[in-house]
């Protein structure tokens, strides 16, 4: 089981991403992106526990620009 963090940039994108995931049965929370990469900067992530690939597909299908994805094993 992994906690997936999908960085989507702005808080509006994060809100939209959260809604897209919820509409597909995935409960997500919005968190401030903690890892700031050089040349990127501040932003927000949607964080959820579950399968990575279907969730990313839902987000891509909804036109949400994904900046980065990280996974932390919590099992």
């Amino acid at each position: 089981m992994a906690e997936i963090r999908v960085k989507v940039g702005s808080v509006t994108n994060a809100q939209k991403a959260k809604k897209v995931l919820l509409n597909n049965g995935i409960h997500a929370a919005i968190k401030r992106a903690v890892q700031i990469k050089k040349g990127d900067g501040c932003g927000y992530s949607v964080v959820f526990v579950g399968e990575r690939e279907p969730a990313l597909l839902y987000l891509k299908q909804a036109g949400i620009k994904i900046i980065s994805v990280t996974a932390n094993d919590i099992s």
């Binding site: 940039g9 509006t12 700031i36 040349g39 900067g41 501040c42 932003g43």
Partner: peptide, 14 residues
């Protein structure tokens, strides 16, 4: 509040 390291204005809405 987004892409703050970039001196160029974000290209996404809003």
């Amino acid at each position: 509040g987004s892409q703050s390291a970039n001196a160029v204005q974000p290209d996404f809405m809003p």
